[in-house]
């Protein structure tokens, strides 16, 4: 059987006494676009943050490209990974944040070229070429020399996407990337993702509150509640004929907003 690109197995995650995940299982195939929907506090973002190595796990194992993410395989079984291992594993992943998190002390272009140069050892010429292409892809070629603070939210987020793509990750994690935007700026960001989904064979994992977008772009939608996947399936099926009561209630509440 083909191994999934991302696999959570019996994962446990706690914040102090609060249990986020217990015996959590989840997997994503290569090239799959998976949307995660659900009420806030259900562990959606935590899932992405665990993958990006921003949050550790208390039990179970997470595998990315077949290798344990938070552990190292040794003769004596799995041991907690060191920074070197995490550094290696992060090469597979890229993340776009809800609040953009652009580096304010760097121009738009430097935001994109810094990691390819410093982390991947690309030359300035190579990095600039990548940045130029990506800025064109997100429609911001004219903003290359500006600082992030002079951009609109939608523009910032498009830079955020370009910055993550510059590292050529196999997996792109999108954490509520339109939640902090004014409504009229949401589409320009979603268009970029639509474009990506069409033209490239990324594996994408997105946490979103834009239901129509999840429906349109995803291969699979997972409805999360209280740290568990209540229901998952193809978007058409899940949105039109949800099986579970909790899914129905959530979608109904969402529709009536």
């Amino acid at each position: 059987m083909k191994q999934p690109l991302i696999e959570f197995k019996n994962v446990e995650k706690r914040f102090g006494d609060t249990v986020i995940f217990r015996d959590f299982n989840f997997s994503v195939e290569e090239g799959e676009i998976v949307s995660i929907i659900g009420p806030s506090g259900s562990g959606k973002s935590t899932l992405l943050r665990i993958l990006m190595t921003l949050e550790g796990i208390e039990g179970g194992v997470v595998r990315v490209a077949g290798k344990p993410l938070w552990h190292k395989e040794t003769d004596k079984g799995l041991v907690l990974a060191d920074e070197k291992h995490l550094h290696e594993m992060r090469n597979h992943l890229g993340m776009v944040f809800q609040h953009f998190n652009l580096f304010p002390h760097m121009t738009v272009k430097r935001n994109i070229t810094e990691a390819p140069m410093r982390v991947q050892g690309k030359t300035e010429i190579e990095a600039n070429k990548i940045a130029d292409e990506l800025l064109e892809l997100v429609g911001l070629s004219d903003k290359a020399d500006m600082y992030p603070n002079s951009l609109s939210g939608g523009q910032k987020q498009r830079v955020g996407i370009a910055r993550a793509l510059a590292m050529q990750p196999a997996i792109l994690l999108l954490d509520e990337i339109t939640s902090a935007l004014d409504p009229e700026l949401v589409e320009e960001v979603l268009d970029v993702i639509r474009n990506l989904a069409l033209k490239h064979s990324f594996t994408m994992l997105l946490v979103t509150h834009e239901m129509y977008f999840a429906r349109e772009i995803s291969d699979r939608v997972c409805f999360f509640d209280q740290g568990a996947i209540v229901e998952e399936g193809e978007p058409e099926r899940l949105f039109i004929h949800p099986n579970e009561e909790r899914t129905k209630a959530f979608l109904k509440a969402y529709m009536s907003q």
Partner: peptide
């Protein structure tokens, strides 16, 4: 978020 972005971009 600045720290998080720098982790996500795999800076040492």
């Amino acid at each position: 978020g600045q720290y998080e972005a720098s982790v996500a971009l795999n800076f040492t």
